[in-house]
Nucleic acid binder design. Sequence first.
RNA 1: GCGGAUGUAGCUCAGUUGGUUAGAGCGCCUGGUUGUGGUUCAGGAGGUCGGGGGUUCAAUUCCCCUCAUUCGCCCCA
Length: 493
Amino acid sequence: MFCEHLSFSCLAEREISYFKRTFIAQVLSSAPVIANEHDAQAHWGIFIYQKHTIMRGNMSLSTQPIKGARDFYPEDMRGRQYIFNVWTEVCELFGYEAYDAPVLESTDLYLEKGSQEIINEQTYTFNDRGDRSLTIRTEMTPSVSRMVAARRQELAYPLRLYSIPQCWRYERMQRGRGREFFQLNVDLFGDGSLNAEVEMIEIADTILKKFGAKRSMYQIKLNSRKLVDSFLTSTLGLDKTQAETIRRLIDRMHKMATPAFTAQIESVLTPTQREQGLLDSLLKFLTAKSLDDLPEIKDAVLLEQPIRELMNQLDDLKITNAVFDPTLMRGFDYYTDIAFEVFDTDPDNNRSMFGGGRYDGLVGMFGVDPIPTIGFGMGDITLQNFLDAHKLTKEIPSTTELYLFSVGDTSKGAINAARELREMGVKVAVDVSDRKPAKKIKNAVKAGIRYALIIGEEELEKNLFTLKDLKAGTEEKHGLQRIVSIVEDYREN
RNA sequence: GCGGAUGUAGCUCAGUUGGUUAGAGCGCCUGGUUGUGGUUCAGGAGGUCGGGGGUUCAAUUCCCCUCAUUCGCCCCA
């Protein structure tokens, strides 16, 4: 039969459609036994199925990274590197030192402070070959607390640490949230004074400025966990469970309609408490735009003083976009006092970017004396969204500074010149293939390389090489020394 | 876990009231130019129209299921 004469390989892809008609016509005319259109179609189906099964066997492996994770090609890596560099630079400017910890931690470490639900549903957790339950880190704070607790006595305080760990969370995907991300973690151990708060916020602010952000682009919201807790329990007289429930409600307040919110609050209160008008007091507290708007609070002076002082100090630093917001909760259970969160003011990206706060109790969970601690974390994806929304991204050139290539039969000379340049510290990629010069220049441009150096016979003779500035489009002949200094000038800027 | 949207070339997308060999732009490759890129011209490669099933003489198109992607909700360390 017709199809027996055909091997799949002899069939050009683009001929399939044409071939289909011919195939069916052939089947119809040459095989009287199955001489109807329907059966011929069926034969075609089998034919195609076999072909595709073979194809699938060869190319079933997906080239996509796993869901929620990213590949970093060189152009992506440059952007990532730029962000990391700014983070590193600012942290080190404030005297913070880099550290790292394992990507895998004992699941217990996260169970201590997080809920079982988060572990079950939002982490990558598995048993290793020794049947230990391990979790891929979802954040750095537990790890760094563990490290500090382990050397509680010998570390020098105040201890300033930063790290840029890759973290994994098994999330439902949505804008600005993948399953894998990098997060700058800045932590200051052993300083219980307000100076620590100021320093944290100043670092965060400096980082954003370094990325070119203006103060109008973001807002820093501040709150005190102590103030809220004291208000709920001492002033309103709620019990622990009620306070906990209401705190969670406040956290979600802005996502709910006001009537729904008040109804839920009321359902938490006892009839007596409702009669006492606790709801009104609570609402007055939550809608306060500044400390002066707050209703009467027990020990108000003591509780409000740190926030006032912090606001004043930030004001002195010209950090004018900080505001007090009594509804700021930041879900964490481990925050103990001041918490802050930075919001993007762009209407298209109006969301929380990052935040942090004081968590004095965490180190103490390892059975050593607690250490006053404050820190914040900043994710690379949300930051990237912020930079995109405010058009703060820039084109980042390749780390390769010079694309050196031969023209004509000059490979040896070209390779030697490249070696010489490298000895003088220039980052050189060399191309001695026999592709056309136009092609080589195109490659250099595509790779984002600033300079091309052309080595032909004439150049080798005179020891003067053609240096092409691919960005400016200019071209000059120079000796190697001069070329090195030109590249160095470029590197400075 | 719930809801919406989208799956057609490497990318961004057209298209088909169901009917010859499924298109465009960009990108890629080759050549005009055996020493010069972002210009131009000519040519070329690249498609199981996400997958499976149904209706039909005929489905990329209509119906059902499924998978994937994505946005939102929940959650958010």
